[in-house]
Amino acid sequence: MEETIGVTSAAQIPKQRGEALQDSAVRYAEERHWDVFPGAWLESVDGTWRCSCGDAGCPAPGAHAVRDDWPTQATGSATVARRLWAKQPNASILLPTGRTFDAIDVPETAGFLALARMERMELTLGPVTCTPDRRMQFFVLPGAIAKVPDLVRKLGWPPATLDLVTLGEGAYVAAPPTRFGASGAVQWACRPTAANRWLPDAEEIISPLAYACGREARRR
């Protein structure tokens, strides 16, 4: 079951309900052919949610890798994914970037502004996540991490001035319905569908993203 939460006239976040983490992880591997691996999870300690890693100051409670060799643990096999989450049903779902997709990470306010512009421009989008720490990740074809800095410069923006980060090889994103900290779960701003199976190149969407991040930088 999904419930949509109104955010802007241009975008609504589909909220997933009642779907087990294991089912989601298996579906990502089976239907999207994304590699997945289990990460940390949240535990209730004296009525307070804490990260399973045990670090009271964990910067990403419930949504980070727990093993240094996570790149070798990540799997695109639905069977293996089912087995991994059977061992720890509460584990977060983490998706490595730099394999079947890269991700462009921006502040939520800039992300929704960019989504509105992309809608007007009739651009084709891939999946987009929205996290409880108010970030959004736009899925694009692999190789974006090498392209984006030059693309941003050509648009007239010094990359260091924008809160825009490209995640490629060696990084990962948390996938819905992973809970992140005490404020909620990762959700889809643009959920995976048959229509967006083919991802855009970073060059196709970088202009509205850079513009939105530039506006956000000036506002701050």
Rank of each mutant, 00 (worst) to 15 (best):
T109K: 15
A114I: 04
M121V: 07
R134S: 14
Q22F: 02
A116K: 13
A212Q: 01
T75F: 10
F112P: 10
G62W: 01
C130A: 14
E204C: 11
V152W: 11
Q187Y: 07
V36C: 04
T124C: 08
E30C: 00
D55G: 04
D35I: 02
T193P: 04
A110F: 06
A194C: 09
A40K: 05
A212E: 10
R27D: 08
I5G: 07
R117H: 09
Q88C: 08
E169A: 13
P59V: 12
V165C: 14
S207D: 12
C58N: 00
F138L: 13
L123S: 14
W49G: 07
E30R: 01
G47F: 02
R134Q: 07
E204M: 14
L151R: 10
V36Y: 02
R215Y: 14
V128K: 05
Q187S: 04
W34A: 03
S207A: 15
N196L: 03
V36W: 01
Y28T: 00
R135L: 03
R117F: 08
P176C: 06
C190D: 06
A146D: 13
G111H: 10
Q16E: 07
M1A: 12
L209M: 10
F180C: 10
A114C: 08
A63G: 11
Y28E: 00
G47Y: 02
N90H: 15
E2A: 15
A11N: 03
E204I: 04
R32L: 06
I13L: 15
W49A: 10
T8L: 04
E2Y: 14
R218V: 15
N196C: 01
A212G: 05
A11W: 01
R215F: 11
E31F: 09
L199V: 04
N196M: 07
E203I: 07
W198I: 03
G98Y: 08
E3W: 15
E203W: 09
L141W: 05
D69Y: 09
T178W: 09
S183R: 03
T166W: 11
I145F: 13
T166H: 13
D102Y: 09
R220K: 06
I205W: 15
E122P: 11
C51P: 03
P59H: 08
G6L: 07
P132R: 02
P127D: 01
A195L: 09
D68N: 05
M118Q: 06
V106H: 11
E203R: 06
L141P: 04
P59D: 06
C190Q: 13
T178Y: 03
V173G: 00
I93A: 01
A175H: 01
W188Y: 03
